[in-house]
Amino acid sequence: MAAAAAAGAGPEMVRGQVFDVGPRYTNLSYIGEGAYGMVCSAYDNVNKVRVAIKKISPFEHQTYCQRTLREIKILLRFRHENIIGINDIIRAPTIEQMKDVYIVQDLMETDLYKLLKTQHLSNDHICYFLYQILRGLKYIHSANVLHRDLKPSNLLLNTTCDLKICDFGLARVADPDHDHTGFLTEYVATRWYRAPEIMLNSKGYTKSIDIWSVGCILAEMLSNRPIFPGKHYLDQLNHILGILGSPSQEDLNCIINLKARNYLLSLPHKNKVPWNRLFPNADSKALDLLDKMLTFNPHKRIEVEQALAHPYLEQYYDPSDEPIAEAPFKFDMELDDLPKEKLKELIFEETARFQPGYRS
C-alpha cells in the first residue's frame, strides 16, 4: 500500500510507478496490472468513496492506442447498470505532455475469474450472474457493438453480487458484411471463450460470437473449470467437437473457408456428449439454455433477447427493466489503419471533457 500523499506533496508512487492523480484522489492501494497499465484503488475526496484507477501508458504502440481509444469512446457513450462506466479521466493539459491516461471507475471487490478459483456457486448465484451478463449484453448488442472478449476476468463483482462487464478494448461495431482481413492475426481474445466460426472463417462476425462466450462462462460457473481449455488453435476446435459432436452437413455448409471445411470433413465422426453427463448436478433449465448458447452453427445460436426470456431466468426476466441503447454506435473511421500519432490526438480530444474549465 502506498503511503497517503500529504496535501501538495506531488504524485504518489505505487510499486515504483508514478500515479499522478492528486489532489482529488489519494490513499492509493495496488490492485493489479494488465498488459499496459496498473490498477489501484484510491480515495475520492470529492465523492467520499474509494474508486478504481487504471493507469494506461499506450502511446508507444499502435495496438494499445487503438484499444484505449475504443474503450474510452464506447464506455463514455454507454450507460447501463451492468456495464462499468467511466467516472473521470485524468491526463496532462497538453498533448505533448500526455504520456499516461488515468481512467477512474467504480471500485468492484472482485471478478468472476477470482471468485470461481475459490468458491463453488449455488444455482441461485449462477442464475443471477447469468441474468446480469445477458442484461448488459442486450444493451451492448442493441448499440450494434460486439464485445468480443467476454470471459470471467472481464466480469466485475461486488459483495452485493452486482455484476458489471468491463474491458471493451477489443470491441467492434457489428459488421457481418465487412471482410476484416487479418482478423485472426489481430484477434487476441482469450482462445477458450472463442466461437468456432472465428477459427473457421475470417469473413465478418456477428453478435452470436458473444453468446458463445457467455455459454462458455455459464459452463464454467457450473463446474469451476473452463469447458474448452484448448492449448492452441486446432486443439481448441477438437475440444469443442469432442463435446458438441461432429457438425451436420448443414452446419458445414455455413463454413465459407474450404480449407477449414475440408479439415472438419477429414475428422472421424464424434457423438455429442449429453450435458447432464458433463454437469450431473446442474439445473435442467440451465443445461437447456447452455445447449442453445453453445450451438456450433452461429445462425442457430440463441440471441440475447431470447436467452433473457428463457425459463431458467424467469424469476428475473423483465423486458421493461432491460434497457437498450438510445442509438446504434458508430465509429467515424476504422481505427485499425491509423498511425499511433493520430490515435493519440483522438484520445486527447475524447478525454477533453474531463479537463478543468472544459467548454463543449
Rank of each mutant, 00 (worst) to 15 (best):
Q132S: 07
F129C: 00
A174N: 07
S360Y: 14
P247Q: 13
D179S: 05
T118W: 08
V304K: 03
R172T: 00
E109Y: 03
G242T: 06
L313W: 05
F296T: 01
E186G: 00
L130K: 04
V51D: 15
M199D: 08
H299N: 15
L137S: 07
D111F: 03
Q62R: 14
A5F: 00
W212D: 08
F78C: 12
I31M: 15
L112R: 00
W275Q: 03
C161I: 06
N281I: 15
H269E: 10
G136Y: 04
E109I: 02
P176V: 13
D175H: 05
E220S: 03
A189Q: 09
M293H: 02
G136I: 00
V304A: 11
V18S: 12
A286Q: 03
L76Y: 01
Y312M: 06
D336I: 10
R194T: 06
I72C: 01
R77T: 06
L200V: 11
S360Q: 13
Q105S: 07
E81W: 07
E326T: 02
Q97L: 15
C40L: 08
E60M: 14
T26G: 03
I198N: 14
M199F: 07
E322G: 00
Y316G: 00
N224Q: 10
L150C: 04
T159N: 13
L155I: 09
Q132I: 06
D88W: 07
N253F: 06
D44F: 12
E322D: 12
S153R: 13
F183Y: 15
D167S: 02
K203H: 09
L121H: 05
N276L: 05
T94C: 06
Y317L: 05
H269R: 02
T295C: 07
A307G: 06
A219I: 10
T160Q: 07
I302Y: 07
K330D: 03
A309D: 12
Y36P: 05
D288L: 06
A195S: 13
R77S: 04
D288Q: 06
H269L: 14
E12K: 13
E197S: 05
I227V: 07
E71S: 14
W192I: 05
P23N: 01
L287M: 15
E71V: 14
I211M: 10
Q105K: 14
S213Q: 06
D167H: 06
D124T: 06
E60D: 15
Y113C: 00
P196C: 04
A325L: 08
P323H: 14
F354V: 10
V104M: 01
T63W: 09
D336F: 04
A42P: 05
P339Y: 12
C161W: 00
V21N: 09
P319N: 04
P323K: 01
F348W: 05
K203S: 09
D318A: 13
N262W: 00
W192P: 13
I89A: 01
T295D: 05
K164I: 15
I255Y: 09
L218R: 04
E314H: 00
Y317V: 00
D175Q: 07
D210I: 08
A6C: 08
K344C: 01
A325E: 13
H232L: 15
L258G: 08
A6D: 12
D179A: 14
C216M: 07
G37A: 15
D106P: 01
Q306P: 07
M293P: 05
R15M: 15
R79P: 01
G22I: 07
Q119H: 13
V39K: 02
H125C: 03
E326G: 00
A4C: 00
V39R: 03
L252T: 04
C40R: 13
K117I: 06
S153D: 11
L28C: 02
R77I: 04
D167F: 03
I347N: 13
T110E: 09
L157M: 11
F19Q: 12
A195C: 08
A7W: 02
Q132E: 14
K344E: 04
S248L: 08
P268H: 14
I31N: 15
G37R: 11
H125D: 12
E33T: 02
K54T: 06
V304Q: 06
D179K: 03
M38S: 13
L234H: 03
A42F: 12
P176Q: 14
R225H: 11
C216Y: 13
F183T: 03
L234W: 04
V188L: 09
E197Y: 03
W212H: 06
K55R: 14
D288V: 13
A52P: 07
F331W: 01
N45P: 12
D283W: 00
Y25D: 02
I53R: 00
M333R: 01
G204M: 07
K330S: 06
N82M: 06
F279Q: 12
D88P: 04
V214H: 04
P247R: 04
R277C: 11
P328N: 02
G242Y: 04
H147K: 05
A2V: 08
F348Y: 13
I95M: 07
H232G: 00
K117Y: 07
E334M: 01
F168V: 00
I302S: 00
I31P: 10
L313Q: 14
H61N: 14
Q62Y: 11
I256L: 09
K203V: 13
G245S: 11
H239D: 12
L308S: 00
Q249H: 14
T190F: 04
L150K: 05
L69Y: 02
P268E: 08
M293G: 01
V46M: 13
H80A: 05
R277M: 07
D283Q: 08
Q119D: 01
D44L: 12
D337H: 10
A52T: 13
I84F: 14
W192Y: 07
Y139V: 10
L115G: 04
I240A: 05
I31S: 09
G34N: 00
R67C: 03
Y316R: 00
C40Y: 14
N257P: 08
Q306M: 06
F354W: 07
E345Y: 06
D106M: 02
D235F: 04
G215A: 10
Q132H: 15
P356K: 10
P274Y: 08
R277S: 15
D251A: 13
Y102G: 00
F296G: 01
I227G: 01
G136K: 05
F296R: 01
Y358D: 10
A309S: 14
N144G: 05
L258M: 15
P311H: 14
L338K: 11
A4L: 10
H141E: 09
E109P: 02
L170K: 07
A325G: 12
T159Q: 06
Q132K: 13
R148N: 11
V173H: 06
V273C: 04
L237C: 12
I198G: 04
P339Q: 15
S284E: 06
L116Q: 14
L258D: 04
D283P: 05
V173G: 11
V145A: 00
G34D: 01
E341N: 04
A309M: 08
I302A: 04
G85S: 13
L343Y: 08
V214E: 15
S266A: 00
Q62W: 13
W275D: 01
R225S: 15
V21K: 03
P11W: 12
A309C: 07
K231A: 04
D288E: 15
M293S: 03
R225A: 10
P247G: 01
E341H: 11
Q119Y: 07
T206Q: 09
P298Q: 00
I90E: 01
R301D: 03
D162Q: 00
K285C: 09
I31R: 15
Y36L: 15
D162H: 06
P23I: 01
E186L: 10
I347Q: 14
N238A: 09
E341L: 07
N144P: 04
R24S: 13
L184K: 06
Y131P: 04
L234C: 02
I56W: 13
P274Q: 15
R353D: 03
A286W: 01
Q17C: 06
Q132G: 07
R24N: 05
F78A: 12
A260S: 14
P152V: 04
D332W: 06
K99Q: 13
R24I: 02
D167A: 14
M221P: 09
R50L: 14
I140A: 06
R301M: 00
P356A: 02
K300L: 10
P23T: 13
P23R: 04
P311K: 01
F354N: 08
Y43C: 12
G245E: 03
S284R: 03
Y233P: 00
I243S: 12
F331D: 12
R91M: 02
K292D: 02
T26R: 03
R77Q: 12
L222D: 05
P247Y: 08
K342Q: 13
P280L: 10
A219M: 01
S57K: 13
C127D: 06
L157F: 07
T63M: 12
I302D: 08
Y113H: 03
Y205K: 07
